[in-house]
């Protein structure tokens, strides 16, 4: 398929991860954007990557889709893995005429029925004949999502898909993602800035800052000192919201690894 990723070298007896990255390092120009990043995505789980600007979140996603060749490390995709990708933003040149239906038919033309079904799935059934340039931000994101769904993805990758949407708009979008995950049983890997919404919607959160700072269940990550060092304690309120919404215990033990300490130790974090 494309260079930069190893797609068809399934190790015999390997686990069932859709994506398995080990010790990934990526350099863009002179800058080391990712160093020694390991992650695995299991079928059906929603994994969210959080991190400050420039922490390499998009770079990590772009490595997985094959747009960037890692400098070191291994990246295994499950053979034949179907990926649906929703980019961060899509700047359509004003000189390029493009209806929604034509956009969904790129690069492979599906049946007209499949296009209508994909649009219905994201609640954008009425948009097929509209020009992409005339869509609102929320409609545009739904159309991008519909295109990603057309290939019946096993892994849906979203790069800050709610950028430019207002609060209710992005909440609705994440609800739609959760709904689609439930229906298609696909895994979701997404990047987001909206910590509180995302935290509530994820099975697992990876906190990235050039390297994996910490990862695990949302509540665990939110209380990790590494996370606090990056995002401050301003997310405390959001965390409370999360806990309010999901009434389960927070003592997640240590199912996730927060191995190293680049942040000042905060023994009394909780």
């Amino acid at each position: 398929m494309s260079d930069g990723r190893v797609g068809d070298t399934a190790e015999p007896g390997a686990h069932m991860s859709l994506v398995d990255a080990k010790g990934l390092s990526v350099r863009l120009g002179r800058q080391m954007v990712l160093s020694n990043v390991s992650l695995a995505i299991q079928p059906g789980e929603i994994v969210t990557i959080v991190g400050p600007n420039g922490s390499g979140k998009s770079t990590l996603l772009r490595s997985i889709i094959g747009a960037i060749r890692p400098e070191a490390g291994t990246l295994h995709l499950q053979p034949g893995l179907r990926i649906g990708y929703v980019p961060q933003k899509l700047q359509l040149d004003a000189t390029l005429p493009m209806t929604v239906a034509r956009f969904l038919a790129l690069p492979k033309r599906p049946s007209p029925g499949a296009i209508v079904a994909a649009l219905d799935e994201v609640g954008a059934g009425a948009l097929a004949r509209r020009q992409m340039a005339d869509l609102s931000g929320g409609q545009f994101q739904r159309v991008l999502l519909a295109r990603a769904l057309l290939g019946r993805p096993q892994l849906l990758i979203l790069d800050e898909a709610t950028q430019g949407l207002d609060q209710p708009g992005s909440a609705a979008f994440y609800a739609l993602i959760a709904d689609i995950r439930a229906r298609l049983e696909c895994a979701v890997l997404m990047v987001s800035h909206e910590l509180h919404v995302v935290m509530a919607a994820s099975d697992r959160v990876i906190c990235l800052n050039g390297h994996v700072c910490c990862e695990g269940a949302p509540a665990h990550v939110a209380s990790a000192p590494e996370y606090r060092a990056l995002f401050g304690s301003g997310t405390q309120g959001a965390l409370a919201l999360y806990r309010h919404d999901h009434d389960h215990a927070h003592d997640h033990g240590h199912d996730a690894d927060c191995g190293h300490d680049h942040a000042p130790k905060q023994e009394a974090a909780q």
């Binding site: 398929m1 494309s2 260079d3 772009r62 889709i65 094959g66 747009a67 990926i83 649906g84 990708y85 980019p87 899509l90 700047q91 359509l92 390029l96 493009m98 956009f103 790129l106 690069p107 492979k108 990758i157």
Partner: peptide
């Protein structure tokens, strides 16, 4: 056309 729209979209579809 896909590559013209967005390079990453092309990569994700297996197009260089």
């Amino acid at each position: 056309l896909t590559a013209t729209l967005n390079p990453d979209l092309a990569y994700a579809s297996g197009i260089n």
